[in-house]
């Protein structure tokens, strides 16, 4: 069976309007994510992770290489790829429920069906009772849950997540990671998850792509075969399989960060 997400020979340059020299952000990246796989992408800051995600989301036009989702070339954004952004990207002028149902609203799903769906996902991300609140009344963690639910609710083929938990505190992050794992089990979505937290990558990923520093190239792929239902921090923290994978990824990333100085 063909992979859900295929990237082939993707290269990207940003033109710089001030200096006239362009920034080489991605260099010949090829990767595949199969159906139902949770893929984590790690790499040093500024290596082009967000660039990759923006290209996959269709927000950034690309010239060199191929990007296919479910066998179809990516041109522009579409509801087949749901994105959870690095910043809080839920609309402040919509209540929680209206934010979550926004994708369905755009697709023209009738109101009663929309309400049912929204209720289902509100429960899934544990926001029961907050449906009518506005984003400014929520905590950072709750905002990211809304963001997650909004993406899930329009039922995309693949989910793209850009460091969604970077801005929340450590406690909340652990909870959210476990919850995301639970959601991954429940929905069996294909997910591409960007992070620079190695623990997070090893905890969540079935597969972990490690990028070099800029210009970002795929440096290595690490497969992690821990069954999803075993992924609970309390158990995993001392699990040798987990720690081995984590240390392997850590070493690979460290090499990149430590050479950063020669840039």
């Amino acid at each position: 069976m063909q992979a859900k997400l295929v990237v082939q020979g993707l290269t990207h340059h940003y033109p710089d309007e001030y200096t006239g020299e362009d920034v080489h952000a991605l260099d010949n990246v090829s990767l595949e994510v199969e159906d139902g796989i949770f893929a984590a992408v790690v790499g040093p800051s500024g290596c082009g992770k967000t660039t990759l995600l923006n290209i996959l989301a269709g927000l950034l036009p690309y010239r060199e290489g191929h990007v296919k989702v479910d066998g179809v070339d990516v041109h522009g954004p579409g509801p087949d790829r749901g994105v959870v952004f690095q910043e809080h990207a839920i609309l402040p002028w919509r209540s929680v429920a209206r934010n979550i149902g926004h994708g369905l609203e755009i697709q023209g799903v009738p109101a009663d069906e929309r309400q049912r769906k929204v209720a289902e996902f509100v429960e899934l991300v544990g926001l029961g009772g907050f449906e009518d609140r506005y984003p400014h009344e929520l905590s950072g963690g709750m905002k990211q849950r809304v963001s997650l639910a909004r993406t899930l609710c329009s039922n995309p083929i693949v989910m793209l997540m850009d460091e969604p938990f970077a801005a929340v505190d450590a406690q909340t992050r652990i909870t959210l990671q476990e919850e995301l794992n639970r959601i991954a089990i429940a929905t069996r979505k294909t997910i591409l998850f960007i992070t620079h937290n190695v623990d997070e990558a090893a905890f969540l990923g079935d597969k972990c792509f490690i990028f070099t520093r800029r210009p970002g190239k795929l440096k290595a792929t690490v497969k992690i075969n821990i069954p999803r239902d075993r992924r609970i921090w309390k158990d995993l923290i001392n699990d040798s399989e987990f720690t081995n994978h984590r240390d392997e990824i850590l070493t690979l990333v460290r090499e990149e960060v430590s050479t950063l100085g020669d840039d």
């Binding site: 790829r81 994105v83 963001s147 329009s154």
Partner: peptide, 21 residues
């Protein structure tokens, strides 16, 4: 913030959606 526009467009929103929403 531009990210609001991006988020609506990735939900499949048209240009008109972006303007009105």
């Amino acid at each position: 913030p531009r990210v609001y526009e991006n988020s609506v467009r990735t939900l499949g929103g048209s240009r008109w959606n972006v303007i009105t929403q």
